[in-house]
């Protein structure tokens, strides 16, 4: 506990320097790695970070466990790559379209929360993931069925192709992750984020506090779905080929594992979780088939010895009030309670 406090005060004090160092490191990373394969892994880690950030809004902050997030990833990936391949649309336009479609699906999946809770809701999300897979498999005229979508074009800006070779895809990933992270922080710190956390803590109590839990749950599903669709679009343009089995139940559990390994309900944890779980199978190729056994062992041991996740500590820093609240507090008379006490006495 003490260690966490020392570290947090250190980070808080040297925030600017550390941020600049981190930025320099991330920008220089592809030149340091100097290998297309390693950059590909880095972009993969980035896209899974996006997926984990998406699921974290739902599972980490609102407390709804989803076992079917691969469905949203599939919607994002399919919509964006089909728009790019068949309609020749720009990556960014098709990506936004993918997010919109996934958001609509999020509303649809959020609706059962009115009736179903807990484990049963997780089961519905599991079914949702399978049904999306089924649609992708059978709607052959659009999705090309089990053959999948081939030759997904790389994103391009003003005719400049972003690929692995010129590191463009890496920097695109960096920008998308940055935007998403800032968005997630903004959501969590807002009134909406506080409502999410209230629902996670106690649904009944938050209803009593006047929070419309149904609409907030649906909103949480929508935000989560949009972020995951963004990750899916990036992932599709990275691997260049998708088919219905790219987005199976394993992907859903992988995203959930990242969120839990990193630390549910923290943003910092998503980066660490994604880096570990995505890099691990690549790093340990020499272990052959044993690496997936080891992957299972890691999950089991983590849950046994650090169930809150690697980065899942509670912050020891004082709660930061928003500017508005701070002004209000400063305006207040510090001796008000004492005066009140004296008045009642007198």
């Amino acid at each position: 506990m003490n260690f966490v406090h020392t570290m947090e005060t250190f980070v808080e004090g040297k925030k600017k320097i550390l941020l600049i160092l981190l930025a320099v490191f991330l920008i220089a990373l592809p030149y340091m790695l100097n290998s297309q394969y390693l950059v590909t892994v880095a972009v993969k880690i980035g896209s899974y970070t996006l997926l984990a950030l998406g699921l974290n809004v739902l599972t980490g902050y609102t407390g709804l466990v989803s076992l079917g997030h691969a469905g949203f990833v599939a919607i994002g990936a399919y919509t964006s790559s089909l728009c790019a391949v068949k309609l020749g649309m720009n990556f960014f336009a098709s990506m936004i379209l993918g997010m919109v479609v996934a958001g609509l699906a999020g509303v649809l999946l959020g609706l059962p929360t009115m009736r179903v809770t807990g484990t049963y809701l997780s089961i519905i999300t599991l079914g949702f993931g399978e049904i999306i897979k089924m649609i992708a498999m059978n709607w052959s005229s659009v999705t090309n069925g089990t053959l999948g979508v081939k030759n997904i074009p790389r994103p391009s800006i003003f005719g400049y192709d972003l690929t692995i070779a010129n590191n463009g895809l890496y920097y695109l990933m960096l920008v998308l992750v940055l935007i998403t992270t800032l968005f997630c922080i903004a959501v969590v710190k807002s009134k909406t984020g506080r409502a999410f956390q209230a629902i996670r803590a106690d649904e009944l109590a938050s209803t009593m506090m006047g929070i419309n839990i149904t609409s907030y749950k649906i909103l949480s599903f929508v935000i989560s779905a949009c972020i995951c669709a963004l990750g899916g679009a990036l992932y599709a343009s990275l691997i260049g080929y998708i088919d219905p089995n790219t987005f199976n139940f394993d992907v859903s559990t992988l995203i959930l594992s990242i969120v839990i390994l990193g630390g549910m309900g923290t943003i910092r944890g998503m980066f660490v979780g994604a880096a570990i779980l995505i890099a691990f199978p690549e790093v340990s190729r020499f272990l052959m088939e044993y690496r997936f056994v080891l992957y299972g062992v890691i999950l089991v041991l983590m849950m046994r010895f650090r169930p809150q996740g690697i980065m899942g500590w509670k912050s020891t820093m004082p709660y930061r009030l928003s500017k508005n609240v701070k002004e209000q507090v400063e305006k207040m008379d510090k001796n008000a309670p004492l005066n009140l006490l004296n008045e009642t006495k007198g």
Partner: peptide, 16 residues
């Protein structure tokens, strides 16, 4: 959820 993830991990171990 810790138990749930544990069973997913166990499933991975057995299958592999």
């Amino acid at each position: 959820i810790a138990s749930l993830i544990t069973t997913i991990g166990v499933s991975n171990i057995i299958t592999n």
